[in-house]
Design a protein around this nucleic acid. Sequence first.
DNA 1: CACTTGACCTGTCCGC
DNA 2: TGCGGACAGGTCAAGT
Length: 302
Amino acid sequence: MPELPEVETVRRGLASLLPGRKVQTVEVLESPRSFPNSPEQTDQFLLGQTVKEVRRRAKVLIIDMENEYSLVVHLKMTGQLVFRQTSTGQVNLSSDFAGGHPSDSLVGSLPDRSTRVRIDFDDGSTLFFNDQRKFGWIKLMPTVAVDMIPFMQKLGPEPLEETTTARHFVERVRRRQKSMIKPVILDQQVIAGVGNIYADESLWAAQIHPETRVQHLTDEQLNTLFTEIVKVLALSIEKGGSTDRNYVNAEGKKGSYLSFAKVFRRQGKPCLRHPEQEIIKLKVGGRGTHICPVCQTAPPLD
DNA sequence: CACTTGACCTGTCCGC
DNA sequence: TGCGGACAGGTCAAGT
């Protein structure tokens, strides 16, 4: 579920909540899928340790501990990391209402039936890992090992890093001349952090049909696409990410980006550039895809 | 190597 | 109301 803006929003929340807290107990309710480490490893390298820092790379969260071990977290489609001040997981009503309407919250009392891991701190607070579909995971490993994970090494550049330029993006996209552009920008080895929502949004903004083969796109079009990817991701972080069904931030609250989306989940609604034209939904590379057929004209067949 | 497809899970929604 | 099938924001392992 969560793409870069959602993971970054969770990271910011956890970064303000976790550092300095000491792990007291860890309970794994879905083993080994959700947390493959053995109880012995957990006891030896996690219990009693204090959180130092919360980082992100692509859609991966990294919780560094003072002992140079880290918890690496991938939320995949439906994962949630929700922090509660009390170990009973009761919603704190005053703080929960502070950010807006009560329905901003999607999770009630924790743990619930999709809780896979709980980490209790010695001050009585708890971090819950909830994941309906069990695709997500948390792995404990030495901090130095995180960057050595094969998929971490293969990740493309961070789109929001100042040092990442359109040239880097174009150079990587051009390795995939025969592919359709949408699956290419979803590939984490090309550019890190783009998922289905922001792929559709940025392709609409750049006025590129998602089935266009890379070889038919000009460098100028790819430059524009990179610019739009950056703008869309940055705007979504500002809005706290997108909540479709499952996504919540570290406080269990929804993001509001979807109400600003131009095409995603807007099939049947007017295109904001061509109000006479409805947004349509198609399938591209097996993924649901939303376009304006006027802005994003059909590409050559090959 | 480039590219596509199916598999991993559970829950929900939609049509019959 | 019940039931089967399609679908869901992400990767991976296999296949061609």
